[in-house]
Write a protein that binds this DNA or RNA. Structure first.
Ligand SMILES: Nc1ccn([C@H]2C[C@H](O)[C@@H](COP(=O)(O)OP(=O)(O)OP(=O)(O)O)O2)c(=O)n1
Length: 1149
DNA sequence: CGGAACACCTAA
DNA sequence: TGAGTTAGGTGTTCCG
């Protein structure tokens, strides 16, 4: 880097009269308060020479190893469009990009501002933070922007009434003291980073200003209105500075409320010290996630020589932070750039019966699908890198290698050339990526340059991709690996966690997810035969490659079909956070980001609170759930529902940190200025001071409204569902604003706000109920007295007494309007739907035929019942669902009874497909101890079936056993009388393989009985007798208890036959009779062939999810078409394999 | 044997 | 600075 000729002095002249105005040297000086600090006309000699012309051709440096079979034809398909020559005319053209990823590094200060009339802000020596932002321009070129001069800082409040001498001299003294303290805390860390090449001594604390135009967000009349703003050299120093300030320090020139100088140590409350540096930049410069940015002509420099460039991006710019123009995502800037998405999948050659381990097992294929956002013609490249030859695949490039090393390196070349913005796949984060990295480490020596080259997946030159394992101290059983990987400049967007987060499914295997959303199954290759295919012919490997390719294509299709990208882009723009935060973080960061942005607009500051030490802060009261009048209603029940209840409460009553009054303050305040909430907290009206949270909610709800409109206009059912997901996500974000205030462990908890919201909610619900019941009465001229039969949080279910849907609608519409009129804006009660008929079973449990229009019902809506719970087996879900359908839709109670009886008979006679008996439950905290993954014994208090099973499976095969967070599938098997439930659970696969009998009686008494009783109870007499004890329960098939494990094996020993001619032979005689013995080899090979063939047949029927252990099993048994015959076919083939295997095994003895 | 405690999942 | 909230039903285990 070039060094500057500028000279900056740091200690003097930090301030002029206006205290917030920082000038010259030390400070940051950025548009904190809207003014640029270096706005005097200093001109600098310009060290940078901009020639407006294209760069020299990039000679591909050390990075790429040439492979003859990667041709120019390949490359031209892979690479991004060429950079238009206009881009290089930096003084004539703006550079526009949509950014996706952002990070930060320490580096040297920029020597000179490319905008020749301006200085570079920030520190001019030492290590400074540089923000790297990665994105794509309209043409589809990759762009990296190095953003310079933005300095990290924090605020520190003076206690109420205190003043600080804001003279340059005094603030300079404060800076020196802080400098000293910081250095003491930093120790040698800081000195090492010294860069004194320009003769200046780098500082830790760059400057101090004092501000009186800002105030704390906490309260209507906050105690903190005066702040020191302290700039530091590197973001990492902020926590240390914060510690110094909150532990107490003596600073000069500070006077207390009585005007006396404070000479002893004082504590300063930190503000906004918990804002990550890159977010600090985004907030201060109004840069929102995934938005468009413009680098105005003449303000930026493009790095043209390869030697000058730090990344592999096509375009690389340097600019000062305050030059970039953020574009509001409206009009032309609402678009999405042609982003490149790379979806990939690897196959490994595991040893039989073991989960692949990178230490030993090679990667044999890597399939890729590269697509461009907005490109309607589908993926632009599909290819497979194979180890060993492979027949051509139509529509895909096949690139074969003789060694695994070559294959990996070729793939790396592809990675580099295709230069994707987004990396996707299925479980790539926890399997493919760590596996490739581990494998590389196993293949190459640490110093091997090939290792270094291979692991460069990111956009930053010479930057190796490393995984960080959030390792858990695992004692006996080994690795619980939650891997995190950063690939500089690219966003890793794994579709598996996305699905787990956004869709409630009982299996998340790629196969079942695709069946659900793409109506598409993939070709199945069971992992046990991958090895055989790999060792086979080019045609075998072709089959594997096709399968592998499909696994690479499907995640990308999923992403496309579910509009994942555009929805995340919208969310990033609305909430302001980078897309990567949406993937890896929760709701808090979104709300926090929005709060900080809005606060900045109105000069409020957010305190950095200490973690509430003692942990268990008391909870608060939530919503009311009205006692249900349980019944089967055969007349219409109308549902009235508040629209976005909690958000609208916060808006209507102006609930916010910044509007709250303490009881003492309230006593001194004009009562017309504020309102006391239902539970005794006081908030001023919005005309006095508008709260931050209501403003945020307004925007979120506006975005939700747009989503709802799009949902209404969606052309297809599927698109409607996608828009519904988007709408729901925005609703959750809005509700999370409320949740944020009540979050015990959070950045800014404020229970008074949260509890005020819920208390208003309780009040509104009660009010609505009583209004409806008091107004819609015969006394008021209505035909019936209305009754609220149920209500939960924000809804009332009203029985108006009307007999038809058509008669109910007008009453419900009117009631909704009249209630809305009772409440302040924007609180609104909506008439949403009528249930007719309506089965109300309990709080949070009901079903009903839903009508949103008079002409026709929509569908049967079910809440909380077994049918919507994933911890029930399919049998229960289906039986209950069908019964409800028959009762509620068909109104055919006898039919329902018949159906149930036949199902019970089937169950008891063991005719039930085992897949319908599989129960799945997720493995949560507390199970850690049982699995031997650490955790404390006292956290595992109650033994559970699925946990005990998972622990046993772990002992059988740690590699394929369920992991924490996975759903564990199990069935209940027969066991000794009185055995506890948790002892009777078994892995369905194990049950199948070993022919273990299922306890079908248990399914009747413990799974079906209660739910059925509850449903039929209000409808028929004596459920016990007629459903659960009839003749249909007499014929019980008791499976032979002898059919225990290894039965075939034992059989073979007792009564052996010659495997060649089936003649009887003695048990100890070996496998063949004396006549067949000479042909031993031939017979063995013949048996081996039978085994192979059986395996192939089996694999063909076997749906698999190689990497998602926990959900593997349900898939095997459930094809989605629910065909029992498929199941039996599989079972038969499975038995064939076992027989064949055992025959082969006999030769081994 | 009965009820408290716990675990899971869902409604809102 | 990792983590929005509370209410509630249901089934199982644990403990006296
Ligand atoms: N995930 C959720 C869902 C709901 N709620 C709270 C806040 C909501 O305002 C209230 C009512 O929930 P609804 O599900 O009825 O949703 P809304 O009323 O917010 O939206 P809608 O307009 O869809 O009714 O419950 C919540 O805190 N978190």
């Amino acid at each position: 880097m070039m060094s500057t000729s500028r000279k900056r002095t740091l200690d003097d002249d930090l301030y002029d009269e206006s205290p917030k105005h920082l000038r010259g040297g030390g400070g940051g000086g950025y548009g904190d308060d809207g003014d640029d600090l270096f706005n005097d006309d200093d001109l600098f000699e310009d060290n940078l020479v901009d020639h407006d012309g294209p760069p020299e051709p990039a000679d591909d440096v050390e990075e790429d190893i040439a492979f003859g079979d990667i041709t120019d034809a390949h490359r031209s398909r892979w690479t991004r469009p060429a950079v238009p020559s206009s881009v290089w005319k930096t003084s004539e053209n703006d550079l526009n990009l949509q950014w996706l990823d952002i990070d930060m590094i320490g580096g040297s200060p920029l020597a000179a501002n490319p905008n020749k009339n301006k200085k570079v802000l920030g520190a001019s020596s030492g290590t400074v933070p540089i923000i790297r932002l990665y994105g794509v321009n309209e043409t589809g070129n990759s762009v990296a922007v190095f953003i310079h001069g933005f300095t990290a800082y924090g605020y520190f409040a003076l206690p109420r009434g205190y003043e600080v001498d804001g003279s340059d001299g005094n603030l300079g003294k404060i800076r020196s003291i802080l400098e000293e303290n910081l250095r003491a805390k930093l120790g040698s860390q800081f000195d090492k980073g010294d860069n004194t090449s320009n003769g200046e001594t780098p500082m830790a604390c760059l400057g101090v200003t004092c501000l009186s135009n800002k105030q704390s967000i906490m309260g209507y009349d906050p105690s903190h209105t005066k702040f020191l703003k302290v700039y530091v050299a590197m973001p990492g120093m902020i926590p240390k500075l914060k510690t110094i300030m909150e532990e107490g320090i003596t600073l000069p020139g500070i006077t207390n409320a009585n005007g006396q100088e404070v000479r002893e140590s004082m504590i300063f409350q930190p503000y906004e010290c918990n804002v990550p540096y890159v977010m600090r930049y985004m907030i201060d410069r109004d840069v929102t996630g995934a938005s468009w940015l413009s680098l105005p002509k003449g303000t930026y420099h493009l790095r043209k020589n390869e030697s000058e460039k730090g990344t592999h991006c096509q375009i690389e710019a340097d600019i000062c932070f305050n030059e970039i123009i953020p574009r509001k995502p409206e009009g032309e800037w609402a678009k999405v750039a042609p982003l490149r998405i790379l979806s990939f999948d690897i196959e490994c050659q595991g040893r039989k019966g073991y989960f692949p381990e990178a230490e030993h097992d090679p990667v044999i294929q890597i399939a890729n699908s590269l697509s461009v956002y907005g490109e309607s013609k589908g993926p632009i490249v599909q290819n497979v890198f194979t180890l060993g030859g492979c027949l051509p695949i139509v529509g895909a490039q096949v690139i074969s290698s003789n060694t695994e090393e070559d294959m990996l390196l070729k793939w790396r070349t592809f990675l580099h050339a295709s230069d994707a913005d987004i990396f996707t796949g299925y479980n790539v984060q926890n399997f493919d990526i760590p596996y490739l990295l581990d494998r590389a480490a196993a293949l190459w020596k640490k110093k091997d340059s090939k290792l270094r080259i291979f692991t460069q997946w990111g956009r930053v030159k010479n930057c190796q991709t490393r995984k960080r394992e959030t390792m858990f101290q695992s004692s006996a059983y080994g690795r619980r690996t939650n891997t995190e990987t950063t690939i500089e400049g690219r966003v890793i967007f794994d579709m598996l966690p996305y699905m787990q987060r956004n869709h409630k499914l009982s299996s998340y295997s790629l196969n079942s997810v695709c069946a659900e959303f793409l109506s598409q199954q993939k070709e199945d290759v069971h992992h046990s035969i991958i090895s055989d295919l790999q060792n086979g012919s080019d045609a075998d490997r072709h089959r594997l490659a096709v399968y592998c390719l499909k696994d690479a294509i499907l995640p990308q299709r999923l992403m496309d079909k579910l509009s994942v990208l555009i929805n995340y882009v919208e969310m990033a723009r609305v909430t302001g956070v980078p897309v990567s935060f949406l993937i890896s973080r929760g709701q808090q960061i979104k709300v926090f980001s929005m709060i900080l942005r809005k606060c900045r607009d109105v000069n409020l500051l957010v305190p950095t609170l200490k973690k509430s030490g003692s942990g268990g802060d008391e909870g608060y009261e939530g919503a009311t759930v009205l006692d249900p009048i349980k019944s089967y209603y055969e007349i219409p029940i109308a549902t009235l529902d508040f629209a976005s209840l909690y958000p609208s409460i916060m808006q209507a009553y102006n609930l916010c940190y910044s509007t709250m009054l303490s009881p003492q303050e309230a006593a001194k305040t004009d009562p017309s200025m504020f309102k006391r909430s239902e539970n005794g907290h006081n908030f001023v009206h919005s005309n006095v001071k508008k709260g931050i949270l209501p403003i945020i909610l307004e925007e979120l709800l506006a975005a939700r409204k747009r989503a709802k409109k799009d949902m209404k206009n969606a052309p297809t059912e599927f698109e409607k569902a996608v828009q519904n997901g988007r709408q729901l996500a925005l609703k959750v974000s809005a509700n999370s604003v409320y949740g944020f205030t009540g979050a015990g462990v959070g950045q800014l908890p404020c229970v008074p706000i949260a509890s005020s919201v819920t208390s208003y909610g309780r009040f509104l619900l009660e009010k609505t109920k009583s209004y409806v019941e008091e107004h819609y009465t015969q006394a008021h001229g209505y035909e019936h007295n209305a009754q609220v039969v149920y209500g939960d949080t924000d809804s009332v279910m009203v029985k108006f007494g009307t007999k038809t849907v058509a008669d109910t609608f007008p009453l419900a519409i009117e009631a909704a309007k009249k209630c809305s009129d009772l409440f302040p804006n924007p609180i609104e009660l909506e008439f949403e739907k009528v249930y007719y008929p309506y089965l109300l079973m309990n709080k949070k449990r009901y079903a009903g035929l839903m009508w949103t229009q008079i002409e026709k019902y929509d569908y049967m809506d079910t809440k909380g019942l077994e049918t919507v719970r994933r911890d029930n087996c399919a049998l229960v879900r289906e039986v209950i669902q069908t019964s409800l359908d028959k009762i509620i839709i068909e109104r055919n109670v006898p039919g329902a009874i018949e159906y149930v009886k036949s199902q019970i008979a089937d169950l008891l006679q063991n005719k039930m497909d085992i897949s319908r008996l599989v129960i799945t439950k997720s493995l949560n905290k507390g199970a850690e101890y049982a699995l031997g993954l650490g955790g404390k014994a006292e956290d595992y208090k109650v033994k559970q079936a699925h946990v005990e099973l998972a622990a046993r499976m772990r002992k059988r095969d740690p590699g394929s056993a369920p992991q924490m967070g996975d759903r564990v599938p199990y069935v209940i098997i027969t066991a000794a009388k009185g055995a506890a439930n948790f002892e009777k659970a078994e892995d369905p696969i194990y049950v199948l393989e070993n022919n273990i009998p299922i306890d079908s009686k248990w399914y009747l008494t413990n799974q079906l009985s209660n739910p059925l009783t509850r449903i039929f109870e209000p409808i028929i007499d004596n459920v016990e007798k007629s459903l659960l004890q009839g003749d249909h329960t007499r014929k019980i098939f008791i499976p032979t208890p002898t059919a225990k494990k290894g039965s075939l094996m034992m059989f073979a020993h007792k009564k052996a036959t010659c495997m060649g001619c089936k003649a009887s032979i003695g048990v100890d005689e070996g496998n063949l009779c004396k006549y067949c013995l000479p042909k031993e080899a031939e017979i063995y090979l013949g048996k081996l062939a039978v085994l192979k063939e059986a395996e192939l047949r089996y694999a063909h029927l076997w749906s698999e999810a190689q990497r998602i252990h926990g959900t593997l099993h349900t898939d095997i048994m459930c094809t989605g078409d629910g065909c029992a015959c498929q199941f039996y076919r599989r079972k038969k083939v499975q038995a064939d394999i076992r027989l064949a295997q055992e025959q082969v095994d006999r030769f081994g003895r």
